[in-house]
């Protein structure tokens, strides 16, 4: 057994906790707790970014850590909490698939993404390449969360969690994206949440609920 250096061990621990949080989000049905989990995921991402920045000495990672703190730990959760209060949605409806089956599906996804990441991380040269599989798993688990949810609100939270996964994937494969791309993505996400917030009000106005099943019928009056 080869002993890893302590910062790499901490990074691995952060990665596994990210994965665990993804599963927690998959199981969580209270939207308020879902947002809190998202904030926690952001905080873990922040810790991982700082660790990696300290390890590699790359300045732009500090900047992206700052961005993560401002946007993912504080900004977006605050925005979402405000939306929840104003829209008065606290619980998601019954999930489309039963919870235990969803969990097992999640496990299969993890197996799949670990297998998918193996050849990629074999080619990568970063110290954090082994966590790429976890990043892909986080992305796909967020997808699964989006698929199994009915309320628009929890789908947006899952979408943001997917962005966290993408960010972590970029970090573990290439020590983060270029600053311009990162800023662009951050801005995109922020704008997306703002626009979707407006959408929520429109959807509720139209259907008296945030359940997306109402959007499935194409013609009016069905």
């Amino acid at each position: 057994m080869t002993a890893l250096s302590i910062d790499l061990q901490l990074l691995n621990a952060c990665a596994t906790l990210l994965l665990l949080l993804s599963f927690a989000m998959l199981a969580q049905r209270r939207i308020v707790s879902l947002v809190n989990l998202l904030a926690l995921q952001g905080a873990l991402l922040l810790a991982a970014t700082l660790l990696l920045a300290w390890r590699t000495g790359e300045v732009h990672l500090y900047l992206s850590a700052l961005l993560t703190l401002a946007l993912k730990v504080v900004g977006l959760p605050w925005l979402l909490h405000r939306l929840i209060r104003r829209l008065n949605v606290y619980w998601d409806a019954e999930p489309a698939i039963n919870p235990s089956a969803t969990m097992l599906l999640g496990l299969l996804i993890v197996v799949f993404s670990f297998g998918l990441a193996q050849p990629i991380s074999a080619l990568a040269s970063t110290a954090t390449r082994s966590t790429l599989g976890i990043a892909i798993a986080v992305i796909l688990l967020a997808f699964l969360t989006m698929i199994t949810r009915r309320k628009a609100m929890s789908q947006v939270v899952a979408f943001l969690s997917m962005e966290n996964g993408l960010f972590f994937g970029a970090m573990s494969a290439t020590y983060g994206m270029p600053m311009v791309v990162e800023l662009g993505v951050a801005l995109d996400v922020l704008v997306a949440v703002l626009v979707l917030g407006v959408f929520f009000f429109q959807i509720r106005e139209q259907f008296d609920s945030l359940d997306l099943h109402h959007l499935e019928s194409l013609r009016e009056g069905d």
Binding site: A15, S100, F114, T131, I134
Partner: peptide, 24 residues
């Protein structure tokens, strides 16, 4: 109770997978 034990199974399998991936 099945959900409780499914959680246990999930955590154990995750531990196994994480061990395989990270090798620690």
């Amino acid at each position: 109770a099945p959900e409780f034990l499914a959680t246990a199974f999930l955590l154990a399998v995750l531990g196994l997978l994480v061990h395989l991936l990270l090798g620690t």
